[in-house]
Structures are given as C-alpha cells and as structure tokens.
Design a protein around this nucleic acid. Structure first.
Length: 459
RNA sequence: GGUCCCAUCGUCCAGUGGCCUAGGACACAGCCCUUUCAAGGCUGUGACACGGGUUCGAAUCCCGUUGGGACCGCCA
C-alpha cells in the first residue's frame, strides 16, 4: 500500500461503503466545456478521473461547463459524451443520466451561483462593478494546498488580482463556478490538468470565504506534441473520433492514454480496462509532461488487435472494407473472419489491416496492382508447368502445397522464390503477404486457378 | 515581465539514499527464422541538464544555474 495515498482503498481495507458512510465515498468529476470535440488532452483527464472512481469504488460525474454563451453548443456536448462512450468511460451522474446532485449543466445552476454571490456581497467579500460581481482578494494571505501529484504548493494572495465571479451577462466564471459546483456536488477529488495549478489559489480563496473545506487536488501532467509544445491540431488528430476513423481500437487509445503520466510499476504495458482499474493509483502519477508518441500508439493498437477474437476483429475491419468499396456481402462471415486469421496480426490499425487484405474479397484490386508483364517466356513456361501440377493436387491444403512446392523446386532445380513470388503476385497483387500457400488455401482452388489464368500463368 | 510547476535513453515509463558499471517498452540498427512481409527470438546504439552542497554513500535530499512548460480573460 502507498501511504501517500490519502484515500483508503475500500477493497484493500475491507471497509463498508454506502449508507451513512456516503460522505467517505470518492466522488470525482470530468467537467468539459462544450466548445469543441473531446480531444486527446480531455480524454486523458476524463480517463484518469474514471480510473480513480472505478478503482476506489466511487462515483464518476460528468458536468458540463457551458457558461460561455458564445461558444458552447449542444452538438459539442453530444460529441463529447459519445467520445467518452467510445473510450468506455461511463459516468454515474450527468446531464443525461441525472443524479442526486443535479442539474449537471452549469447553465442550469445559475441560482446556486447567485445565492453564494449574494452571501459574499453581504459579507463585504465581493463587490459589484458594472453588472459583474467581483471577489475581493485579501492581502497577505498564504494560500496552500497539498496536491496528490505535485505535493505541497503555496502562493501569496498578494500576487493575485481580484477575481470575477459573475460576468455581466449573469453567467458565473470558471474559477468561481468550479468551486461552487465541486462543493455542492460533494466532489472529493479534483483531478484535472496541470494547467489549472495556477488557478487553484484563486479557488482556495473562494472556499475560504465561503467557509468550505478544500477537496483533495490532483493535477495531471500535460500532454505535449513531438515538438514538446502543448498538443494541438498541428500534431495530427485532435478529437478521439479521428483515432476511431483511423482504425484505432478504443481499448488501445485507452491503454495508450493511461500510460501517459502513469504506469502500473511493473513491466506491463499492455492491459485491458479492467486490469487498469485494478492497478491504477493516483499516487503513482508522475509530474513530468509527456510527449504524445504515435509510434507507441501504433504498437499498442497492434497488440490489442492481435489479442482480439476473429469475429471481433472482423467487426473492426469490416467498415474499412466497405469504405474501400469491397464486396463484403458476397462472402460468408466465416470466410471473412478466417481471412483475417490468415492475415495474422499484419497491420497496426484496422484500416491498415483492411488495406492489406482486399485480395481476399475480390480480384479487382489485384488486377489494378499487377499486370504480370515482367515474366518472360522462359519463366512463364516454368510457371505453367508448376501451377498446373499445383492446381491438380489431391488436397487443397497449405501444408500439402508447401511440401509439394519444395519437392518440385528441388526436382526441377528451380528456386523456391522464383515460383512462390509470381504465385503471390498473381493471387494478391502484392509482393508482401502472409504465407502464399495459406492465402491460396483460403482463396480456394477455383479462385486461384481463375487468377492465375488471367495472367496466363497456367495452361 | 510576475507567479507557479517540471527536468532519467529520440519517445513512454521503472527508480522514493546503498540492490544502479541506471532497468523495461516503443522507435532505430544488426543477426536468426523464412517463399515475401509482419510476427517472434537474440544482440546492439542510447539517458540521470549543469554546478555546488548534505551524507560513509545521491539519479534519489538541499541550494543555485540553465532549459522547458503553465497561468496571469467578464475562456474554461
């Protein structure tokens, strides 16, 4: 057990939860503003909150911070939610599911913000300027908190400017609303990006003014692009959807994101959601910002892809085949799934896998890629003899074909690759493929005969 | 500029004073396997930013320097 961890693990300590001990239960929230899709940074923050809630048996709350009237839209709210669902981050309370601490949209909690603001106004801790309500920062106060990741942090109030609580349009500002909501929603752990560390002292001031206790803070290291700058569109995909569209599995993106700023501590980098939940610990989160590394994502995705049962892999690849205009429906599910088994882990994404396997679905792309013109008369004659005998084999099985080919190449003093390569090219149109006999078996004797005949590689 | 934060291979992590001539993974290079590629196996290149302390002993603790980042909005 990690003694730094201030929150007891209910499983490990065998404590009972619920009922009157409700107050002990971990409550964390992800609070995006609906001004854009769920991007990698937001996904990372949501993920760590979710992990902590699930690990501790607590609650994961989704709160929509839609106080920017100009930029917030319902569409973005929906995309963020479906992005989270895609990643498998389910929430216990939120704008759609409801819950005992609702409403879960800031735009619907305006009265709560006003009440607290009135109180502060009456007590002389805030003042009006124009239509806005502004918090008066007291001088000479030391603001301090103990961050679960960054440790003890303190700052003098003198360096702070007064903070706007309610904007002229009646909407609360972030630094104010976040305090009111986290407190009234019973949030126990505020887990958010490191870029919020400098905001925290302002929020502390408001907790103090209202006489509220601080939640536990845990700031997460930033995710940077290859150039070590804050991740942005310039670094490629930004929304988690773009990863889905590129053929990445949600489990892989989950796994990859979990590894940014955290590790289970053992030499275990590929894990499932459930394993991550069991292993996760906020006390093991590191402080150093991490660079988003596409190569690592690719590797992780390939590992997850390899571990997938055939039909699940088929479900992932199928949309990309369709996108490529391949005749998916003219084949049986068994045939398609088996084709991917033959492909055996080739391709780092479902999209790549689809691109490597088009020849299983139709001959057309093969013809487009390969014309057989580099084969001279002499070699063609050899191929015709060999292919003729191959197609006449009593059993159309890869091991049988392979054995036959070895014997034939020795007997005829022909190099294995001189007959295997044209065969591969003729049936796949590629110089790279799985074992050519496995491909031939999967395609079937008739289809192979048809393709070879097209190139005049067989009599 | 002010305040705050960070600093181990190119990248992601391990390391919480002795087990470290610093470990794993990705990437890269080579070899093996082989009908091609992928996968797999083996090997290699490669880091504690720098300078001072503290200590019998420091990647680990302290101070400074340098370098990076964040925040300083009636955005969140």
């Amino acid at each position: 057990m990690h003694t730094q961890c201030t929150v007891p693990n209910p499983q490990a300590e065998g404590r009972h939860r619920g009922g009157t001990e409700m107050a002990d239960t971990v409550r964390v929230r992800f609070a995006p503003s609906p001004t854009g899709a769920l991007h990698i940074g937001g996904g990372h923050t949501a993920l760590f909150n979710w992990l902590w809630a699930r690990h501790t048996g607590g609650k994961f709350i989704l709160r929509i911070e839609d106080t920017d009237r100009e930029r917030s839209t319902k569409e973005y709210e929906d995309t963020i939610m479906s992005g989270m669902q895609w990643l498998g981050l389910d929430w216990d309370e939120g704008p759609d599911t409801g819950g005992p601490f609702g409403p879960y949209r800031q735009s619907e909690r305006l009265s709560t913000y006003r009440e607290a603001a009135e109180r502060l106004l009456e007590e002389g801790k805030a003042y009006r300027d124009g239509e806005a309500v502004i918090f008066k920062v007291p001088q000479g106060v030391t603001l301090a908190f103990d961050d679960m990741v960054y440790g003890h942090i303190e700052m003098q109030s003198d360096t702070l400017k007064d903070v706007v609580m309610i904007k002229s349009d009646g909407m609360p500002t972030y630094n104010y609303a976040v305090v009111i909501d986290d407190h009234t929603m019973g949030i126990t752990h505020v887990i958010r990006g490191e870029d919020h560390i400098s905001n925290t002292p302002k929020q502390l001031l408001i907790y103090d003014a209202l006489g509220w206790e601080y939640p536990t803070f845990a700031h997460l290291p930033m995710i940077l692009g290859k150039d070590k700058k804050k991740l942005s569109k310039r670094h490629g995909a930004t929304s988690v959807y773009e990863y889905r569209d590129m053929g990445y599995m949600p489990d892989s993106v989950f796994n990859f994101l979990a590894l940014l700023g955290w590790s289970p501590g053992e030499n275990n980098e590929i894990f499932s959601r459930d394993e991550a939940v069991g292993l996760f610990d906020l006390a093991r989160v590191i402080k150093k910002p991490s660079v988003f590394d596409m190569d690592k994502l690719n590797y992780i995705n390939q590992e997850h892809l390899k571990r997938l049962p055939p039909y699940e892999r088929l479900a992932l690849v199928e949309p990309f085949w369709r996108e490529m205009g391949l005749p998916v429906d003219s084949h049986s599910r068994e045939y398609l799934a088996q084709s991917l088994v033959v492909l055996c882990g080739r391709g780092q994404t479902a999209k790549e896998t689809a691109g490597y396997s088009d020849y299983f679905l139709t001959f057309e792309p093969v013809k487009a890629r390969y014309d057989g013109s580099e084969i001279g008369d002499e070699q063609r004659a050899v191929l015709k003899r060999f292919n003729g005998e191959l197609l006449a084999l009593p059993e159309w099985k890869a091991p049988v074909m392979e054995e036959f080919t070895r014997e034939w190449s020795t007997a005829n003093n022909v190099k294995m690759k001189d007959i295997a390569m044209p065969l591969r090219l003729g049936i796949t149109g590629m110089k790279v493929s799985p074992g050519v006999f496995e491909v031939a078996e999967q395609l079937g004797r008739d289809e192979v005969r048809k393709r070879l005949a097209y190139y005049n590689f067989v009599e």
